[in-house]
Design a protein around this nucleic acid. Structure first.
Lengths: 179, 179
DNA sequence: TGGACGATGTCATCAAGTGACATCACTGGA
DNA sequence: TCCAGTGATGTCACTTGATGACATCGTCCA
């Protein structure tokens, strides 16, 4: 992250990173599938936590309740270190390649959530939809959290955004869009 | 597309493609930013059509109405050639690199829709949320359309999925999830 | 003590991408 | 008719990401 921040992602070679760590480029690729992956090593853990939280929701609760629990778990995990999150995100935002990678990590989480919902007995189409909606909320809430003060409560923003999504999608005419 | 289908995306080199077209690899890169981009040349047009449709919605209509119009425009454009769409999508699904690229195209469209909504006076956060929700609907409907019979009506599926999203997000308890 | 194993290094190689420069066909005037 | 400009292409050289094959070295265990 330091090197990416100093020179920019594209200007930093894998050889740079490796030698900084006292290793070889070849060794770098034994630890990370590619140059992007360094910034996304935590995403499997995030996925696991979210799926665990989703699975832990009492059966019989609707899919969005389960998704909300997953979002809460994500917020707890990601909300701990705002400064780290900001630095990391600014690197990602600065590089198209990294943004692509971030998107596929999100998509992977979405697919896992959808799977989890189906395991709960949610019809396949609803599961996909609820999971995608969850990801949408995640994204918007995350962005909002990063834009706000460091002390802001990510979990709270997530919940409010989820709430808001339901309002926005339901209100097809403007006058119903109160907040 | 033929080469990608025959040998797979990774096994096809840019030199292969170029020589197939009677050109040089260097020339390929003058027409496409990279090897992935060949499959996504149509996406700017799709974006334009969707934004046009969004802009054309009567002011005062809620954001989801505008998004629905954009989805409709997309459906019209993408629903024309189911066989082409299927072949193309199966190539994309087979390659992580291509899936990444597809995701960033979707994200770009989402950002453009959010922008369009803000131009309509929709509050920034609601705009992001409505746009992301639209993309979610797009994705799920698209997948469903591809899985179904070729004669299925993409626009109809989009509308139904949007409808369904509102039901799913609103219904936080299971008993409310009729539909 | 010896051997399995895991982490690393070394070397060779391929493919993606890019910059610099040359070539060639076409087109719009002088 | 010819010439200059322009755009598309080719050629060459080079960097970098990524991978396979093989060697080395240290640790741990039977």
């Amino acid at each position: 992250m330091r090197l990416y921040a100093e020179r920019g992602y594209e200007q930093t070679t894998v050889a740079d990173i490796a030698s900084e760590a006292g290793l070889t480029a070849r060794t770098f690729f034994r630890h990370f599938a590619d140059k992007r992956e360094v910034l996304f090593s935590g995403s499997e853990i995030l996925l696991e936590r979210m799926v665990e939280a989703l699975d832990a929701v009492r059966p019989g609760q609707g899919p969005m309740r389960a998704v909300a629990a997953a979002l809460d778990a994500a917020a707890v995990m990601l909300g701990r270190d705002p400064s780290f999150s900001r630095r990391r995100q600014s690197l990602i935002d600065a590089s198209a390649e990294l943004r692509e990678r971030e998107l596929i990590k999100m998509a992977t989480i979405g697919a896992a959530l959808a799977d989890g919902l189906r395991r709960r007995g949610v019809p396949a189409a609803d599961a996909s939809l609820a999971a995608e909606a969850g990801i949408a909320v995640f994204r918007v809430a995350w962005e909002q959290w990063l834009a706000g003060p460091p002390e802001a409560d990510l979990a709270g923003i997530m919940r409010a955004t989820l709430e808001r999504l339901s309002t926005v999608t339901t209100a097809l005419s403007p006058e119903a869009a109160d907040g």
